[in-house]
Design a protein around this nucleic acid. Structure first.
Length: 503
RNA sequence: GACCGCUUAGCUCAGCUGGUAGAGCAACUGACUUUUAAUCAGUAGGCCAAGGGUUCAAAUCCCUUAGCGGUCACCA
């Protein structure tokens, strides 16, 4: 009975109580039997979900002669290998390994299988007397020997850092993580479907840009060796897409892709994020409001089967029409302050101060309005709301409002207190655009790291002539968060940005 | 970037006002055999994030560093 002490300092005998070494040991035993632990191919007849659906009607205790071949990762082993749960991407199926249907050699092989291994199994379909659909196994085959012990099968993988750094482990173990990322994929596809159906064409414009523009943001800088030139990773594709409208490539173009912003990281911000931007000739911002709410509503309905969803404690109703109100009216509604009634920046700063919003001396009227909105109103925009008519001061690429020179024809869409979309009638007057760029350059020289650069070629493009055009952008990560009830943006990104480990 | 918090076995977590480390799962040995987190008996597994200090004595108190999380700031 004396247990052989594996702790003895014998270099040649592995410590079999160490999960990792036990797996290596089983790998060796497989090799000694002449079994390839990583064979190239296994022909499956069904995925787990297909089997579950096909044999849904099988009675408890009923056996069939239908032969199936399934494959998947071992998630649980019960009764010394008699019952094995296999998981594939579609779901789970139990395989039943009994001496009545397997020879001794086949049964012995089971001892070399661990939780985490990928195996294939062949057998006949049955439902156990207790009601579990099972493959009555005649043979199994090792498809991939796993050398990593999997996280606890019940408690799962809770350590957030490991979940993001080793997403593969998170996915193997946490169904919720798999569901979230699958839903993300669907959302992106549904958006594409919608855009394609309306006749828009999808394009790809450079991530590497020599001139930073299209949004107020701090960029990443990188270097191309052969050109000996610095490039910015784009903060937005805006200026490239408008050039395509100018060229008449299509009346509607869109791009789904990554933007990069060298700013803080938070539960709502990842340094690289995915957006859709689209431009439509002969649209103004009213047309875009209709478009955005129809598109988002359509996507929500395709994902959830209804336009009403729950996020945390909030019930959100995407049914149209969405609330539309001007930024200044919303500020008045929530704070009582009327910024349309004040003319100068000084008066605006003083007005903001009465509600405890403190602004720098040099702030202009528009910056004050935007700041007051962000601090006092944004979080209250739970139901989908188009916040219209933003200040011109903070909108260098939008067309001045047809009725008010201090405002632009722009709206931001808020849902659940988050900015989800941003849209405007595009500024297409080359002379005014040139002035706006000059103002940006001035702000940049004054120390604003987010100011845009002069883009002479873009002005030249406008001189060729941009038809009246509406453009919009939407943060896809945030939309996915909303539709998957995720409170952290990292949960909807396969590999969120983390600080590299330095050891 | 600032403040607060977390880091204990492969995984999930206990560990009291300081007294020298525990459980469940996973692993290993055996029993049992139509299970559903199978069960039963046993075995092994730890520089308590890293470094420094206080103390007779530190997982526990203090300092530094790292990673992560939360809040705020900037932003989508």
């Amino acid at each position: 009975m004396a247990q052989e002490k594996n702790t003895a300092k014998d270099e040649n005998s592995p410590d079999l109580t160490d999960p990792r070494q036990a797996k290596e040991h089983k790998l060796q035993l497989l090799l000694e039997k002449g079994i390839n632990p990583y064979p190239p191919k296994f022909d499956r007849s069904h995925q787990a979900a297909e089997i579950q659906a096909k044999y849904e009607g099988l009675e408890n205790g009923e056996e069939t002669k239908d032969v199936v071949r399934v494959a998947g990762r071992i998630m649980a082993i019960r009764n010394n290998g008699m019952f094995i749960d296999l998981m594939d991407a579609s779901g789970k199926v139990q395989i039943f390994c009994h001496k009545d249907s397997m020879d001794e050699e086949a049964l012995d092989l089971l001892k070399l299988y661990d939780i985490g291994d990928v195996i294939g199994a062949e057998g006949t379909m049955r439902r156990t007397p207790r009601g579990e659909l099972s493959v009555r196994c005649t043979s199994t085959v090792m498809l991939t020997k796993s050398l990593m012990p999997l996280p606890d099968k019940h408690a799962g993988l809770a350590d957030v850092e490991t979940r993001y750094r080793q997403r593969y482990l998170d996915l193997v173990v946490n169904e919720e993580s798999r569901e979230t990322l699958r839903t993300r994929s669907k959302i992106v596809r549904f958006i594409r479907d919608y855009m394609d159906d309306m006749g828009a064409i999808e394009v790809e414009t450079p991530n590497l840009q020599a001139i930073m523009g299209g949004a107020s943001a701090k960029p990443f800088v990188t270097h191309h060796n052969a050109l000996d030139s610095n490039f910015y990773l784009r903060v937005a594709p805006e200026l490239a897409l408008k050039r395509l409208i100018i060229g008449g490539l299509s009346d509607s173009v869109y791009e789904i892709g990554r933007c990069f912003r060298n700013e803080g990281i938070s539960i709502k911000h990842n340094p690289e994020f995915t957006s859709i931007e689209a431009y439509h000739a002969y649209y103004d911002y009213y047309d875009l409001m209709d478009l955005v709410e129809d598109l988002v509503g359509t996507v929500v309905e395709r994902v959830h089967g209804t336009k009403k969803i729950t996020f945390g404690k909030n019930e959100i109703d995407f049914g149209t029409p969405w609330k539309r109100a001007t930024m200044c009216d919303l500020i008045k509604e929530h704070t009582g302050l009327d910024f349309m009634a004040v003319e100068t920046a000084e008066d605006a700063i003083a007005l903001a101060k009465t509600k405890g919003v403190h602004m720098d001396e040099g702030s202009n009227w528009g910056q004050v309005v935007a700041e007051v909105f962000d601090e006092r109103c944004e979080a209250k925009m739970i139901q989908p709301t188009h916040v219209m008519d933003l200040p011109l001061d903070i909108s260098p690429l939008a067309k001045v409002h047809r009725d008010n020179p201090r405002l632009v024809e722009r709206f931001e869409t808020y849902i659940n207190g988050w900015e989800i979309a941003n849209a405007f009638s595009e500024l297409n007057d080359p002379k005014i655009q040139h002035q706006r760029f000059e103002e940006q350059v001035k702000q940049g020289e004054a120390g604003d790291e987010e100011a845009q650069m002069m883009d002479d070629d873009f002005v030249t493009a406008l001189e060729v002539g941009l038809p009246p055009t509406g453009g919009w952008g939407m943060g896809i990560d945030r939309l996915v968060m909303l539709l998957t009830n995720s409170s952290n943006i990292r949960d909807v990104i396969c590999f969120p940005t983390l600080k590299p480990k330095n050891d």
